[in-house]
Design a protein around this nucleic acid. Sequence first.
DNA 1: GGGGCATGTGAGAACTGTTGTCGACTGACC
DNA 2: GGTCAGTCGACAACAGTTCTCACATGCCCC
Lengths: 140, 140
Amino acid sequence: MIRNTRQRAAVNAVFDELEGFHSAQEVHARMRAAGDTIGLSTVYRAVQALVDDGELDSIRTDAGEAIYRRCSARHHHHLVCRACGRTEEVEGPTVERWADRVAGEHGFVDVKHTLEIFGTCAACHATAAPTPVDGPARQG
Amino acid sequence: MIRNTRQRAAVNAVFDELEGFHSAQEVHARMRAAGDTIGLSTVYRAVQALVDDGELDSIRTDAGEAIYRRCSARHHHHLVCRACGRTEEVEGPTVERWADRVAGEHGFVDVKHTLEIFGTCAACHATAAPTPVDGPARQG
DNA sequence: GGGGCATGTGAGAACTGTTGTCGACTGACC
DNA sequence: GGTCAGTCGACAACAGTTCTCACATGCCCC
Ligand SMILES: [Mn+2]
Ligand SMILES: [Mn+2]
Ligand SMILES: [Zn+2]
Ligand SMILES: [Zn+2]
């Protein structure tokens, strides 16, 4: 049985205050800095549980780190500024249908997909680029 | 200046004989097993150089491991069977236009994207599922 | 065909993110 | 309150990747 614990609730609460994507390690550091006592393993277990519950969405940086964000319930994708890290949720039936169709044409069933879009947001394009964030290694 | 070395050529050659995606560690093990003497660090450096040159395409498994494949020059995406790991290259203007359009609508410039499709291929769907391969953690 | 030397190599150490271990703890249920 | 499976967290272990640095070797120039 899944039990309600202070730690799980606290991790969940952190994502109420946080915009955008954050790693388990960062969440752990923030909680510790705020006086919360919680183990790193517990943070990892909590974010994974939250992803399983659909509370958080997770993507992986180009460096291989998993980052998490409070996620709206609707299926969507992310548009990420590679300069400032700002993310927008984007969605649309076009790409959903395309993915299902090409998979079906190849005889694949039980189809899911991952899609992330990287670019430079208008603000960052206007000014000089601040601290960069990893985009994809190669356009794929 | 970039120098031509036996090791770099050998890593490149490995991908001529190999279908699908393979990790740096696997390539290293194959080369060692075949009697090639090469260091793991060198394999990592070689595949990275090949990705930079556009000779290889790289994606990251859900477990965070980078895997590499000889890549056709045309822009495309991958349709991966989560049961047997078989991959198909898929492409189409629909999804390209969609990604560029939604990014443009949000004021983003210099846009790239990553897209992978996961499913069960017809062969694996017909038989019982063999050794599974990771798909995405969550449909995104 | 040699020097000279910047570039590349590779064994091993180090580093990163993540997961496993296991004794202590505690929320849920009675 | 008592029971006990689920949970915690310090720590170790692990996997993939990158760094270090002494040694080797392509490449340019003669
Ligand atoms: Mn989608
Ligand atoms: Mn594309
Ligand atoms: Zn930006
Ligand atoms: Zn298959």
